[in-house]
Write a protein that binds this DNA or RNA. Structure first.
Lengths: 147, 147
DNA sequence: CTTAATCTCTATTGATTTAGTAGGGTTACA
DNA sequence: TGTAACCCTACTAAATCAATAGAGATTAAG
């Protein structure tokens, strides 16, 4: 299960993706629109800012904007920032590798082998889907495939 | 990330799969062989027993045995018992479906749509791999595919 | 029939994570 | 210079994780 926080982050980004270019969106607007507790959303957007996903403008007329185009922001990178490693085992994580203390001999660990396949399949989906895909009207994906 | 408990469960089952047919294996032997805290393993095996994965014999010469052949026990069903739902969102769970309180209109929820693909991919791997696969010598899978 | 070995079950515990809340501090537009 | 907005840190209640503890039930062996 992904955390509530990650769900909030993804929803918030879709709001930013739908905003007019260069027009900052206020935290309170995003919170209201997506029913996200405002103070919690603040933290989330701050994280996303620190990790180079969004930028902010302070003071009156301030708010948040996407730093990169929506079709350059993948679900995978957002999940990594908010929820941490994608991999189901520490010894399979790309960003936070840690040897399993029990299984010695990773090459021979069949459990690892199975979960490596899970991790691959998961990454394929998460890193090939972007915020733009989440905003696109229904059927857009199919349309793109036929083009 | 799967829990430590799930990893222990899978390892314990591979030990049972490797035991001679009809020969019960004691908790302490499994614990020693796989470096699992014995009392913790007790609980795990009890769970697996209640869920019809293994059977036990009490008293002297007692121990645990697989209830089904190892190639009929999938990683997926073990994970469900120990860690709960496979799906990354409650609204995608087969065994523990729960409507997301925020996203109304599941058909139109694009986040759900993306994670549905993740869930499908994960299930494909987890329910097509069995304890027998985890015990089989390296390369067995390839051999089977070429046959 | 007693004893020791073995599984059975429930409760408890400490650490960590999750999902927020709280409350100032800082910036910048008007 | 006021005040609307983001910035940042700390705190907390509840749940989950990874065990540990200990009494009870069952069975094989002597």
């Amino acid at each position: 299960m992904i955390t509530q926080k990650a769900k909030y982050a993804l929803r918030a980004l879709t709001v930013l993706a739908e905003a007019d270019d260069g027009e900052p969106v206020m935290i309170s607007d995003i919170a209201a629109q997506q029913k996200i507790p405002k103070k919690f959303l603040e933290q989330i957007l701050l994280d996303l800012k620190h990790q180079g996903i969004v930028v902010s403008r302070r003071g009156k007329q301030g708010g948040y904007l996407l730093l990169k185009p929506a079709d350059m922001i993948t679900f995978g990178e957002v999940l990594r920032i908010i929820d941490g490693p994608i991999a189901p085992l520490p010894c399979l994580s790309i960003t936070a590798y840690r040897k399993c203390d029990d299984c010695d001999g990773e090459q021979n660990c069949e459990i690892r082998h199975v979960f490596a396949k899970v991790a691959d399949a998961t990454r394929k989906v998460l890193f090939s889907t972007t915020i733009a895909d989440a905003v696109a009207p229904r059927g857009a994906e199919v349309t793109r495939m036929l083009a």
